[in-house]
Lab assay of single mutants.
Amino acid sequence: VTLFVASYDYEARTEDDLSFHKGEKFQILNSSEGDWWEARSLTTGETGYIPSNYVAPV
């Protein structure tokens, strides 16, 4: 399981994006799509795309 933590807050801009807060942890589901990764929030359980430059490895 690949875990990352949010370095910043992010507000979703499309329905496919995932909003999150600094400190929130994610399981990365797919990182092969470039700068936007499909992730599941371990806080909310929601799945969506997050900007990879807003998160760091745990």
Results as ranks from 00 to 15, higher is better:
Val1Lys: 13
Val1Asp: 14
Val1Pro: 12
Val1Met: 13
Val1Arg: 11
Thr2Cys: 15
Thr2Met: 12
Thr2Gln: 13
Thr2Asn: 12
Thr2Glu: 13
Thr2Val: 13
Thr2Leu: 14
Phe4Cys: 09
Phe4Asn: 04
Phe4Pro: 04
Phe4Asp: 04
Phe4Leu: 06
Val5Arg: 05
Val5Thr: 07
Val5Ala: 07
Val5His: 04
Val5Asn: 02
Ala6Cys: 07
Ala6Thr: 04
Ala6Asp: 03
Ala6Arg: 00
Ser7Pro: 04
Ser7Arg: 13
Ser7Gln: 15
Ser7Cys: 15
Ser7Ala: 12
Ser7Glu: 15
Ser7Val: 15
Tyr8Val: 09
Tyr8Leu: 11
Tyr8Glu: 11
Tyr8Asp: 11
Tyr8Pro: 00
Tyr8Thr: 09
Tyr8Gln: 12
Asp9Gly: 05
Asp9Glu: 06
Asp9Ile: 02
Tyr10Met: 02
Tyr10Lys: 01
Tyr10Asp: 01
Tyr10Arg: 02
Glu11Ser: 09
Glu11Gly: 05
Glu11Trp: 08
Glu11His: 09
Glu11Asp: 09
Glu11Cys: 14
Ala12Met: 04
Ala12Gln: 06
Ala12Phe: 03
Ala12Thr: 05
Ala12Asp: 02
Ala12Leu: 01
Arg13Gln: 14
Arg13Asn: 09
Arg13Ser: 10
Arg13His: 09
Thr14Asn: 14
Thr14Tyr: 15
Thr14Ile: 07
Thr14Trp: 13
Thr14Lys: 13
Glu15His: 11
Glu15Trp: 09
Glu15Cys: 14
Glu15Lys: 13
Asp16Cys: 15
Asp16Glu: 12
Asp16Phe: 15
Asp16Thr: 14
Asp17Asn: 11
Asp17Ala: 15
Asp17Val: 14
Asp17Ser: 14
Asp17His: 15
Asp17Glu: 15
Leu18Glu: 00
Leu18His: 01
Leu18Val: 05
Leu18Pro: 00
Leu18Arg: 00
Ser19Trp: 03
Ser19Leu: 02
Ser19Ile: 01
Phe20Glu: 00
Phe20Arg: 00
Phe20Gly: 00
Phe20Ala: 02
Phe20Tyr: 02
Phe20Met: 09
Phe20Trp: 01
Phe20Cys: 00
His21Ala: 11
His21Trp: 07
His21Ile: 12
His21Asp: 06
His21Ser: 13
His21Cys: 14
His21Pro: 05
His21Asn: 10
Lys22Tyr: 06
Lys22Ile: 09
Lys22Asp: 03
Lys22Ser: 07
Lys22Ala: 11
Lys22His: 06
Gly23Met: 03
Gly23Ala: 02
Gly23Ser: 03
Gly23Asn: 05
Gly23Lys: 02
Glu24Thr: 07
Glu24Pro: 01
Glu24Leu: 01
Glu24Tyr: 04
Lys25Ile: 15
Lys25Ala: 08
Lys25Phe: 15
Lys25Met: 15
Lys25Glu: 09
Phe26Ile: 05
Phe26Val: 03
Phe26Tyr: 01
Phe26Ser: 00
Gln27Trp: 13
Gln27Leu: 14
Gln27Ile: 15
Gln27Ser: 07
Gln27Val: 15
Gln27Thr: 09
Gln27Asp: 07
Ile28Phe: 03
Ile28Trp: 01
Ile28Arg: 03
Leu29Pro: 04
Leu29Trp: 05
Leu29Thr: 06
Leu29Phe: 06
Leu29Asn: 04
Asn30Gln: 08
Asn30Cys: 10
Asn30Thr: 08
Asn30Lys: 08
Ser31Trp: 13
Ser31Tyr: 12
Ser31Pro: 09
Ser31Met: 15
Ser31Arg: 12
Ser32Met: 12
Ser32Asn: 11
Glu33Asn: 15
Glu33Asp: 15
Glu33Val: 10
Gly34His: 11
Gly34Thr: 12
Asp35Val: 10
Asp35Pro: 10
Asp35Thr: 10
Asp35Trp: 09
Trp36Ile: 07
Trp36Met: 12
Trp37Lys: 02
Trp37Cys: 03
Trp37Asp: 01
Glu38Lys: 12
Glu38Tyr: 15
Ala39Leu: 01
Ala39Val: 13
Ala39Trp: 00
Arg40Gln: 08
Arg40Asn: 03
Arg40Pro: 00
Arg40Gly: 01
Ser41Phe: 02
Ser41Val: 05
Ser41His: 06
Ser41Cys: 06
Ser41Leu: 07
Ser41Thr: 03
Ser41Lys: 12
Leu42Thr: 06
Leu42Lys: 03
Thr43Arg: 12
Thr43Asn: 09
Thr43Trp: 10
Thr43Ser: 11
Thr43Asp: 10
Thr43Cys: 13
Thr44Gln: 02
Thr44Val: 01
Thr44Ala: 02
Thr44Ser: 09
Thr44Leu: 00
Gly45Lys: 04
Gly45Cys: 10
Gly45Pro: 00
Gly45Val: 01
Gly45Ser: 05
Gly45Gln: 06
Gly45Asp: 05
Glu46Ser: 09
Glu46Val: 09
Glu46Leu: 14
Glu46Ala: 12
Thr47Glu: 08
Thr47Val: 14
Gly48Cys: 04
Gly48Val: 03
Gly48Ala: 02
Gly48Ser: 01
Gly48Gln: 00
Gly48Asp: 00
Tyr49Val: 07
Tyr49Pro: 01
Tyr49Arg: 14
Tyr49Lys: 14
Tyr49Trp: 15
Tyr49Gln: 08
Ile50Pro: 01
Ile50Leu: 06
Ile50His: 00
Ile50Phe: 01
Ile50Trp: 01
Ile50Cys: 02
Ile50Gly: 01
Pro51Met: 06
Pro51Ser: 05
Pro51Ile: 03
Pro51Phe: 06
Pro51Leu: 07
Pro51Arg: 06
Ser52His: 08
Ser52Leu: 05
Ser52Tyr: 07
Ser52Asp: 03
Ser52Ile: 07
Ser52Ala: 13
Ser52Met: 09
Ser52Gly: 07
Asn53Leu: 09
Asn53Met: 11
Asn53Trp: 15
Tyr54Thr: 06
Tyr54Cys: 13
Val55Trp: 03
Val55Ala: 05
Val55Thr: 04
Val55Leu: 13
Ala56Glu: 14
Ala56His: 14
Ala56Met: 14
Ala56Pro: 04
Ala56Thr: 15
Ala56Leu: 12
Ala56Lys: 15
Ala56Ile: 14
Pro57Glu: 08
Pro57Leu: 08
Pro57Cys: 07
Pro57Ile: 08
Val58Asn: 06
Val58His: 08
Val58Pro: 05
Val58Asp: 10
Val58Ala: 09
Val58Met: 11
Val58Arg: 03
Val58Tyr: 10
